[in-house]
Computed example of a mutant assay.
Amino acid sequence: MTPCIFPLQKVKDINKTSSGVLEKWPMRLNALPPRIKNENDNGFTLKVYNEDNKIWKKRVSYYSVMLKSLSYGGYRNVMDMNAGFGRFAAAMRKYQVWVMNVVPFDAKSNNLGIIYERGLIGTYMDWCDITDIILEMHRILRREGTVIIRDFKDIILKVKEITDRMIWEGGTLVKDDDHNGSSQEMIMIFNNTN
């Protein structure tokens, strides 16, 4: 359990919070988290944070075009399986959805504290083989639920091979143009028809 417990920063004054003063909700969702504002060991910078938020606002805007029912409440529960700074959840704020932010327990940067400082919910997860991940997604995905997978082409092709055997509908494949054509990521959308 030790790797799954998020350590709080040390404070000397009982009247101070461990990471700094937090804004009230909903302002804190878009306010600069104290762990980025203060010195940190993980190399999180204001520039990286702002660029990440900008990219995810653009991506969510694109998703809302692809998933028409997002705008009128067709989805309630969403999981971001590699939550970063909670950028996806923050960009989804205007939709009536609940987002669970998941941080891989072995991620290079431990940013679950930033997610909490933004007022979001998050957890660690020990993701295993891609086949196991897809099977778990299939188990929890409701009928007519949708999966958006954004990853590198080799992973997308492995996922497509697995989901074809599971009779998931779709497999719409789109190149990710977030970085002016320099990204090697692709997007695949599946619908669970079972």
Score class of each variant (00 low, 15 high):
M81D: 01
G73Q: 04
K160G: 04
F44W: 14
W98R: 06
L120G: 00
P7E: 09
W98K: 14
I140R: 08
E169M: 11
R93E: 13
G43P: 04
K68T: 12
L70A: 00
K68P: 13
D106G: 14
N180K: 02
V60W: 06
S71M: 05
T146I: 05
A89H: 02
F190C: 04
Q184R: 12
L46G: 01
R87E: 13
G181Y: 01
M66T: 06
K57I: 09
V102Q: 03
N191M: 14
R93I: 00
I167K: 14
K158V: 00
V159L: 03
Y63G: 05
D177I: 02
N192A: 02
Q184D: 08
C4W: 04
N15W: 10
K10A: 10
F44L: 11
W25V: 01
N101L: 00
I133L: 12
S109M: 11
Y63H: 11
E51V: 09
E39R: 15
P3Y: 01
R76L: 00
M66H: 15
I167H: 14
S19K: 00
R118M: 11
V147Y: 02
A83Y: 11
F85L: 07
T163P: 09
V102F: 05
E144Y: 07
V48K: 09
D154H: 10
G122V: 01
R142Q: 12
T172E: 09
V21N: 09
P7V: 00
P104N: 03
G43F: 01
I148L: 13
M27I: 09
G84E: 05
A31D: 05
L29W: 04
E117Y: 14
K94H: 12
R93G: 04
H179G: 00
I156L: 02
F190I: 03
M166H: 03
F44M: 15
K58S: 14
G119C: 07
S18L: 03
L32W: 02
G113Y: 10
